[in-house]
Computed example of a mutant assay.
Amino acid sequence: MSSTTVGAELRRWRAVRRLSQLELAALAGTTQRHLSFIESGRSRPGRAIVIRLAESLGLSLRERNDLLMTVGYAPVFTESGLDETALRPVRVALEQILHGHLPYPALVIAPYGRVVAANDAVEVFTEDASLELLEPPVNMLRLMLHPQGMAARVGNLDEWGRHVIDNLRARARRSPDPRLDDFVAELAEYVPQAPVGPEHLGFSVPMRLASADGELRLITTLTSFATATDITLAELHLEAFLPADQTTAELLRVRAERYRNGRTTAASRR
């Protein structure tokens, strides 16, 4: 690749991050003059400075590999399959976390909402959902907002759904991706617009989800692998739901017990 191409990529990322040459140079431990030479194509950067610049720009591991390859260097971050032996300890740990979170729902989600693992309590999300939306691999974001998924049961879809959309748009601004833009546009069509009134509480309002046992009020926690050096792990996140009140906690406990007993009965019949 030409030095000009590398420079154009750095300028593009600086614009996305709203950083001046001086600010980025200071973050990366180099001089503005050196960075200016790289961006103008007058200097071919070494591998180490490319990694420092990518890190200072806050690029994802995948984006750092892309920048390295633009310069002509080999990628440094691996991308393992989740079912590979190298990631077995991580899989075991995730399974333990998912099981330990019962009777509350928890999922491991890959980019664009693809579910890669979940505990039994997520059955509360699939109640009355279209079979088409439950075909693997399930896309949790689409299931949540689609009219034939959870949307019909979410009492505050306008506010809660907008929270989901805004988070995705923030991610798209940070890491521009046409595929993500298209996905956000699709999801946005499912969420009704609602004016912000005097009782608006921002994103602090829990999701109100109707169920066969009564209304559930759920809040969400997101966990990511902040120190991962494998692209697959770095792009995963654990989404765990917690009850926002005692009534929800009790309903989820009852559902989990009923679901467990149902599976046990079915297994004994076989």
Rank of each mutant, 00 (worst) to 15 (best):
F77W: 14
F125W: 05
G197F: 04
T221M: 13
T30S: 11
A106V: 02
R174C: 10
G41Y: 03
M1W: 10
A240C: 08
A86T: 15
Q96I: 09
Q148C: 14
L238Q: 07
S60R: 13
R173E: 15
R142V: 14
T223D: 04
D83E: 14
P192L: 12
I109F: 01
T248E: 04
E127Y: 13
A152Y: 11
L59C: 02
L107C: 01
E79I: 04
I38E: 00
A118P: 01
P195L: 13
P75I: 14
S268M: 15
P136N: 08
A15T: 13
E9G: 06
I38M: 02
G72M: 07
I49E: 13
F37Y: 12
L19M: 12
S43V: 08
R114H: 10
A185F: 00
T5I: 09
T220M: 08
L143A: 14
R263T: 10
E257A: 12
V205K: 04
G41W: 02
N167I: 07
T229K: 13
L133K: 10
S36H: 11
W13I: 03
A210R: 13
M69T: 15
R217A: 14
G46Q: 11
D66K: 11
L22A: 15
I109S: 05
E189H: 13
A151Y: 09
A118M: 07
S36T: 15
Q148K: 15
I109K: 03
G214N: 03
E189S: 15
E79V: 09
R17C: 03
A121F: 01
D128C: 12
R255P: 01
G81H: 12
T221F: 07
P176R: 13
L82Y: 14
R217F: 11
L201M: 06
R14I: 03
L143N: 09
A188I: 05
A240W: 01
V50K: 08
R255A: 15
L67A: 04
P103V: 01
Q21A: 08
S40W: 00
G214K: 07
